[in-house]
């Protein structure tokens, strides 16, 4: 059996397991929609001519949803699996280790796609959003999605090695994710944040994922309101690709199959 075949089989198993645990399905898929609804009700107005706040928060929540499935999801799931001995059992089989990661990436891609599709469907049906017709926009969407979620997935796997117990994982990962959501312009218009906060956020992927998603779903006119006065798609690609490399390096350096008390 080669790495890829087994990776696909692991991916199918992971997705099956996810879909069967009702709490995680409802929370993961429902949370972004709830947030979009709440924030749209709080701020019903327009940010700029022809751009409603509800459109802005939609793009932010798409990006945040990808981070939630990749970074938060794996940052919590893997330590629990390590605690419960799932990883040790797998390490005791001839399964190639890369297949485990391939399976996780497939699972995250599937959940991320499902989460995004639901958000878009909700936006079209209930907030009167129209989706872009330009295929180039969808191409941008595709690469922002793939680069963004891959980086978050790798960082989630890397973060899973920071925490020593499954129970401690959510205490570490959740606040990190929340802070990034606030400073990266998920909930508030990025340019309205303090300058230093923008500078800090620009070092990390979420800000660029949000910006990339805005370039797809907001009208071209809004580009002038961005920090640089344009969508900066080249920079988006560069930063996200850099985080994929950094994330991969961190994974390779830190990943553990057993708990610390196992030695």
């Amino acid at each position: 059996m080669n790495v890829l075949t087994l990776g696909v089989r692991r991916g199918r198993l992971e997705i099956k397991q996810f879909l069967r645990s009702r709490e995680s399905v409802v929370f993961t898929l429902g949370f972004p929609i709830i947030m979009v609804t709440i924030f749209s009700l709080i701020y019903p107005g327009e940010l700029a001519p022809g751009v409603r706040y509800s459109q802005y928060i939609l793009t932010g929540m798409i990006a945040a949803g990808l981070m939630a499935t990749g970074f938060q999801g794996l940052g919590m799931q893997i330590p629990m699996e390590r605690d419960r001995g799932v990883l040790k059992r797998l390490a005791g089989t001839p399964m190639p280790k890369a297949s485990y990661f391939a399976g996780k990436i497939l699972m995250v891609l599937a959940i991320g796609a499902l989460c995004t599709a639901l958000l878009l469907a909700y936006a079209v049906l209930f907030t009167g959003t129209t989706l872009p017709a330009d295929p180039m926009k969808w191409l941008t969407f595709a690469w922002v999605f793939v680069l963004g979620i891959t980086g978050c997935t790798l960082l989630g796997i890397a973060a899973s090695s920071l925490v020593s117990t499954g129970r401690g994982a959510s205490a570490v990962v959740t606040p990190i994710a929340l802070v990034f959501q606030f400073v990266s312009g998920v909930y508030f218009v990025f340019t309205s944040l303090p300058h230093w906060m923008q500078q800090v956020a620009a070092l990390f992927p979420l800000k660029w994922m949000c910006q990339g998603m805005r370039s797809v779903f907001l009208p071209e006119s809004y580009a002038a309101h961005e920090a640089a006065g344009s969508w900066e798609l080249g920079k988006v690609a560069l930063v996200l690709a850099a985080w994929v490399v950094i994330g991969l390096a961190l994974c390779l350096l830190t990943f553990r199959w057993t708990t610390r008390r196992d030695g």
């Binding site: 198993l13 099956k16 397991q17 069967r20 645990s21 699996e81 419960r84 040790k88 005791g92």
Partner: peptide, 11 residues
Amino acid sequence: VLQSTGEFEEL
């Protein structure tokens, strides 16, 4: 066969 068991939950 390790000491820990019961990690497949929903499968």
